[in-house]
Design a protein around this nucleic acid. Sequence first.
DNA 1: ATGACTGCAAACTCTTTGCACAACA
DNA 2: TGTTGTGCAAAGAGTTTGCAGTCAT
Lengths: 147, 147
Amino acid sequence: MRTHPADSLLTEKLRASRHRVTSQRLVIYRELHARKQHVTADQLLDAVSPALPGIAIPTVYATLFLLEELGLVRRVSTGTGAVLFDSQVDPHAHTVCRSCGALADLADGPGIPPEALRSATDAGFAPDHAQLLIWGRCADCVAAGAH
Amino acid sequence: MRTHPADSLLTEKLRASRHRVTSQRLVIYRELHARKQHVTADQLLDAVSPALPGIAIPTVYATLFLLEELGLVRRVSTGTGAVLFDSQVDPHAHTVCRSCGALADLADGPGIPPEALRSATDAGFAPDHAQLLIWGRCADCVAAGAH
DNA sequence: ATGACTGCAAACTCTTTGCACAACA
DNA sequence: TGTTGTGCAAAGAGTTTGCAGTCAT
């Protein structure tokens, strides 16, 4: 398999955590990185199937959980439909439309307030990530008058 | 049915939105308010069953969705297990433990940064709620050395 | 009286589990 | 060569749907 820009970080993290470097893990991570959007396990399965014939959904889930553990992927859940996985691992905000369900990154939004993390730490909690969900109506649904 | 402190707000909102005032809705809302914690639809079913013999889970879901629409309940989802419903509707932060899965309110945490809502509004999004999820390890799991 | 709501049963989606074979180290 | 990882099938959890009867208005 040819190497790919996203491979080195994953390979390094896998080795460091004594996990094996497999083509499934490489290809899934590449795909997550290629699209800078949020994807479901199922969409990912479809996306990597050409490169990994015969891959099955449990492998996709297992890989996503491992990537999450390694801090290379974050999960985003609105509580409706499938969980989304995000290759952008820096704390950031998402908007969730109550009408169409669309989830979007809040472009150039503010970061996560440091006081929040400090406050969690003060309570004995050891934070490693944060995400802000903003609920409401997206511009399209407002324009369409959808409720 | 005797009246209850939480009834008036619900009744008012139901009337205003031309929905009917039923005992199922009243009791479910009371129960949500009684416990100031996060509950699943299933826990709620168990909790209200004594007061509402024969109530079924689809009714609980339907009621929760309606309450959410009326802004009387918020959903919180970590992407693992069942969705949680929260009667505290003001924007606030939650901590999520990666080890034990516990979800807790971040006591006296900072509010949601106004810049975030402003930034969403600037993008044409009409926000009505926000929630911050802070991921990591809870104090108990840190103390127990769980991974 | 009429339309909304509820209870029931069943379906459906998404996710997880258990096990045998494959393949990384 | 010894595990760890993968593919398969199936089960499981949580949620949603359709419909007939009930009840608030």
